[in-house]
């Protein structure tokens, strides 16, 4: 297990190199010149040229990339082109907000998804099963920005139960977290259901019944633990799309998180900011994946042996 974790940590290096390179190339390719944008409208040619030299944008691409990477290794993500503040400082303010949002969203994904999946699987093809699966299908189909606006309209504007936007109190977390977690919850629900139905048909469930155990013991102790093994993988994958989703949800609910920061930076061609944001988001994703794989092994010890 220890060796496995070390091995996985070493694999992070090429992943990070790849991510930064791709982001770097994309930012070079998109139309628009950061020096022009930064200098503002009507700035003279000389000012723009001067800016370009100051920012090192006149150097060849590979030199720019190499100097960027060597700075990153030293913990320097560069300064924002917009306000010349260190990118890292900005990220450290934004990241906790996004992580909080992601945490509550994934909580909703897992808890809601599991409960719905179990309800479905216990009485397959019953009305409760069909009901849950219809809602789950909706959850998968609805785009999150639309769901966000819908929730906002119903609970904040019409009912006035919850705040519309921002990130000040616990009440502010609820709607964005539901918006972001709903799609995942639907997928987890469907996965839990099919996994449970498969497990319930296994020989060891028959053994448990023959032992005289009550139905709830069979479901929660004997079936669920086995059924969770594939669900863990799905939750891990969900986390990736969830990080992507923060970009939209933070925009809809006007939350100053990492996602929104990246979007703003892209708009202003603030390359160091974009790269820093994406880099940190990738790191988070890689670590979460490692965590999921480790959990998978804890739950399913047979993998260790084979």
């Amino acid at each position: 297990m220890f060796l496995f974790i070390i091995k996985r940590l070493l694999q992070i290096v090429p992943v990070i190199l790849g991510v930064t390179l791709v982001v770097f190339l994309i930012m070079q390719m998109v139309p628009g010149d950061s020096a022009v944008i930064l200098a503002g409208e009507g700035a003279s040619k000389e000012t723009v040229e001067q800016l370009r030299v100051d920012l090192g944008l006149n150097k060849p691409m590979h030199e720019q990339y190499i100097s960027y990477i060597s700075n990153v290794v030293q913990g320097d993500l560069g300064n924002s082109l917009k306000n010349n503040q260190p990118v890292l400082d900005e990220i450290l303010i934004r990241l906790p907000i996004t992580m909080e949002l992601a945490f509550f969203s994934i909580l909703i994904t897992v808890v809601l998804g599991l409960i719905a999946g179990i309800i479905s699987a216990v009485r397959p093809y019953s009305y409760s099963d069909i009901g849950v699966m219809v809602v789950a299908l909706l959850g998968i189909s609805l785009p999150s920005f639309w769901l966000g606006i819908l929730l906002m309209y119903v609970f904040s504007i019409k009912l006035q139960w919850l705040p519309v936007a921002g990130w000040d109190s616990t009440a502010h977390i609820i709607l964005p977290a539901i918006t972001l977690g709903a799609g995942g919850a639907a997928i987890v629900a469907r996965m839990t259901r099919s996994s449970m139905l498969e497990v319930v048909g296994q020989d060891y469930i028959r053994t448990a019944k023959a032992k005289g155990l009550a139905e709830h013991v069979i479901i929660y102790k004997h079936a669920l633990r086995n059924a969770l093994i594939p669900v863990i993988t799905v939750v891990g994958l969900q986390f990736g799309s969830l990080l992507g989703g923060t970009v939209l949800v933070e925009s809809v609910f006007a939350i100053n998180g990492l996602g929104r920061m990246i979007v703003d930076a892209i708009r202003t061609r603030d390359i160091p900011m974009v790269q820093g944001g994406v880099l940190v988001a990738s790191l988070v994703f890689v670590f979460v994946n490692l965590l999921v794989d480790t959990m998978y092994r804890v739950f399913n010890k047979r993998i260790d042996l084979n």
Binding site: D203, Y204, R206, T207, A208, K211, H222, R302
Partner: peptide
């Protein structure tokens, strides 16, 4: 009344 089954490989719960 208790039972034992044919497949010892699959009749025990793999995670308990």
């Amino acid at each position: 009344i208790s039972m034992i089954f044919q497949e010892p490989m699959t009749s025990l719960n793999p995670v308990i």
